[in-house]
Structure formats: C-alpha cells, structure tokens
C-alpha cells in the first residue's frame, strides 16, 4: 500500500492531520469554527491568486490567511462577520476561476486536494510545523485554558500578548498548510470534526486533545486505506469518513 512514491504523501498527510487535530481542538475551545472556515477559504483564494500571478503559493496563501485572521481578531463577532468573510473568499475563488484558466485548475486542486502529489517540499514544511507545534503545546494550552474563563477573572496573569499572537500565527500556518496538502474540504474536516466528536467522548481537557488526535488519525488511516484500493480521490473520502467517525462518537457518548 505504501510504495516509494506514496511514502512522502502518506507521512506528510499523517503529520498535517495531527497538527490539524490539535488546532481543531483549540478552535473548538475558543468557539471559533467560522473563523477557521473563513481563514481556510481565503488561504485557498491566495493559492488561486498565486497561480494567476505566477507567484509561489505558500507565501501568498499565508499572507491572505494572516490578513483575514487579523481582521477577524478585531471584532467580538464570532459568527456573522466570519461567515461574510468566508462567502467573500468563495466568491473571489469562483470569479478568479471563471476568468483565468490557470485559476480554474488551481481552484480545482484546492477543492479536491492533491495529497498524492505532495512532495519533499510539502513534507519538510509540514514536518517543521509539526515540530513547532510540539514545542508550542504548553503555551497553546495556556492560551486555550484562559479563553474558557470569561467573564470570570483569575488572580494569575493572562497569557502574554506575544503568546496570544504566536497562537494565532500558528493557527494560520496550520490551516493554510493543511489546506495546501489535503485540500480545503479535507483540511476543514480534519480540523473541525474530530474535535467535535472528541468533545462528546472526553472526560476532561486532556481527554479532549487525545480523543481529537485519535479520531483524526483514525480517519486519515481509514480514508487512505479506502481511497487507494477503490481508486477514489482522497479528500472526499476523508470528509465522509470523518463525518461518520464524529457521528459514531456522538452516539457512543449518548449510549454510555
């Protein structure tokens, strides 16, 4: 199942899935689901725009994703504005695809995902992000724990501004790179669904992170095992598998 050609995509996919599961658990705790959708959509718009301008994809996608996150952080509105920004991103991609042939190809690649074509460049980028994530975990947990408290206020100091900015930059990098490697729908499915399923199963915060990782990695492995022998594109299979896993988690929580 893992020939030489597929080893790099498999490892890159597995690593980015672990990072997305961590980011998804954090976004779930922050109640920022719509922000993730808006950010991912504008990362895709950045990728499509880069293809039109013949610029490198990652910096443009990161720049647009960071711009969107900076805008959304300036408002307490967690639903309507992020939804409007998401729709604007969708419109931008559609318009670019309708007017430029290379944009149409790029838009299709972002929508369908191109995990099987991930190369060493993507693998190195994902490995660097995974390593950075491991190092950042204690700080990220501090930010996410503190985000649960309002309107209550603890006697200890709030996380420093640099740590909160680092968390936002890391979320942007995780979603942009995840969308690049897995495709936007698959990245969002790895981001949001395992964390949602885990929230029903976990007994506490630690359990939430562990269950999110377990569900996300199980989803990736099942989708990989199904899509290759059945000769199906990976991204839609992953989305469906993650939906099923999240629903099973919900049912197990009700049952027990």
């Amino acid at each position: 199942m893992l020939g030489d050609l597929l080893l790099v995509p498999f490892v890159a996919g597995l690593l980015v899935t672990a990072v997305l599961a961590l980011a998804g658990a954090g976004l779930f705790l922050r109640g920022s689901v719509w922000q993730a959708l808006a950010l991912g959509q504008w990362a895709a718009a950045g990728g499509v725009l880069a293809s039109v301008l013949h610029w490198p994809v990652l910096p443009v996608a990161l720049a647009l994703g960071a711009g969107v996150m900076a805008l959304l952080q300036r408002t307490p509105d967690r639903e309507r504005l992020p939804l409007a920004v998401f729709l604007a991103g969708l419109a931008a991609v559609t318009l670019l695809a309708a007017n430029f042939s290379q944009a149409s190809l790029a838009a299709a690649a972002w929508a369908e995902g191109q995990l099987y074509f991930a190369g060493p460049q993507e693998l190195w980028a994902v490995a660097a992000l995974a390593l950075a994530s491991l190092m950042l975990v204690p700080g990220l947990l501090k930010v996410w724990r503190h985000a649960q408290l309002a309107p209550d206020v603890p006697a200890k100091r709030a996380p420093a501004a640099w740590l909160r900015l680092t968390e936002i930059a890391w979320l942007v990098a995780a979603i942009v790179l995840g969308s690049m490697v897995l495709g936007l729908p698959a990245a969002l499915a790895s981001l949001l669904l395992p964390a949602w399923g885990a929230a029903h199963l976990a007994r506490d915060l630690r359990g939430h992170f562990l269950w999110a990782q377990s569900l996300a990695l199980a989803g990736f492995l099942i989708a990989w095992s199904l899509s290759l022998p059945l000769d199906q594109p990976f991204a839609p299979v992953l989305v469906l598998v993650n939906i099923v896993l999240a629903l099973v988690a919900r049912m197990v929580a009700i049952w027990r």
Partner: peptide
C-alpha cells in the same frame, strides 16, 4: 458540549 472537568477549571483559574 464543553469537555472541561472541575480540575481543569481550577487549573485555569490558578486555584
């Protein structure tokens, strides 16, 4: 759902 325990809350509050 909100997957936090009482221990998590005390830890977040530094208590």
């Amino acid at each position: 759902p909100w997957p936090l325990s009482g221990h998590d809350w005390f830890r977040a509050m530094g208590a």
